[in-house]
Design a protein around this nucleic acid. Structure first.
Length: 276
DNA sequence: AACCAGGTTATAA
DNA sequence: TTATAACCTGGT
């Protein structure tokens, strides 16, 4: 028998934060839902188990320092999503009702390289398989976490850059193997500078990411939004395309302004839950 | 057994 | 410049 002596850290939960919706909305693929409705995951080599209750967030198996310096930022807890939702509501009544379907979603601040690989894998693929591929990739090529040896970090670009397509056979990523290796190689040889792209004018950043094989407009947009927190980005997949044609005909995503990225999430969930 | 899945690439008009 | 097939793989 074991007693869980792990330190528990509690902070106040801000309004407009729904952990489950945030982690299941398709922006990330690596958080595991536990039996007690908590979630386990790894960011920047740090393991975390997290859960939310009425008005608190409970962090387990991590440190005070990590909560302050990593997790609050990762979950974007210092941003006022209530304000963002209000501003978006003013744009149109349809957006106002869309927000009601998933008001607690936040855009995570994921690691850029992980987001890049994840969304390369996501192309022409379904979520269960994307999840499985990424999980295998981490187990096979990622180091374990310092604070939990049962969980692996996402592999570094250095490790992936030195793989051969055959090495990725067992991971199940299919034709995307050469894309992953190309992405890692370009990061390693400085052809692609993810930190610089994060700060570039948006159209320049888009083109820069698309120099990587297997990165087109949709994947680039996802990397910018989910891996670089460029909130003005608006990934258009088949569902968003249909939703925009249906709900906002003759409009462009630019009407949603500097927070188009979160608007995209609201629209996606609204459309999929109402129109199935 | 064919078809599909939160796209992109290579080829051809 | 725009259009269309092919793409690994696992599930239905």
């Amino acid at each position: 028998m074991s007693i869980n002596l792990a330190k528990v850290i509690k902070i106040k939960k801000p309004k407009y934060f729904n952990l489950k919706a945030t982690l299941n909305c398709g922006q990330c693929f690596r958080w595991k839902e536990e039996n007690d409705d908590s979630y386990s995951g790894v960011v920047k080599g740090e393991f975390l188990n997290v859960a939310t209750y009425d008005d608190i967030i409970v962090f387990k198996n991590t440190s005070e320092k990590a909560v302050e310096e990593l997790w609050v930022d990762y979950f974007d807890l210092n941003t006022n999503y209530e304000k963002i939702a209000q501003d978006l509501s003013k744009i149109s009544p349809k957006m106002s009702s869309a927000i009601k379907y998933a008001p607690g979603i936040r855009i995570l601040k994921q690691e850029a390289f992980e987001a890049l690989c994840s969304f390369i894998i996501s192309q022409n693929n379904n979520i269960p398989r994307i999840t499985k591929i990424i999980s295998l990739l981490c187990e096979k090529y990622g180091k374990v976490c310092k604070n939990n040896k049962n969980y692996h970090q996402f592999p570094t670009s250095e490790v992936i850059a030195n793989l051969k397509p055959e090495d990725l056979r067992g991971v199940g990523c299919g034709f995307r193997d050469v894309y992953l290796i190309d992405a890692a190689k370009k990061v390693e040889n400085k052809e692609i500078d993810l930190k610089a792209i994060k700060e570039m004018p948006i159209n320049e950043a888009r083109l820069e990411l698309q120099k990587i094989k297997g990165v087109g407009p949709k994947v680039a947009e996802c990397v910018l939004l989910y891996g670089m927190h460029r909130m003005e980005c608006f990934p258009v997949d088949v569902w968003i395309k249909r939703a925009m044609e249906d709900l906002f005909p003759n409009e462009k995503y630019e009407i949603f302004g500097k927070n188009a990225g979160i608007a995209q999430q609201y629209i996606y969930h609204y459309y999929r839950s109402v129109k199935r």
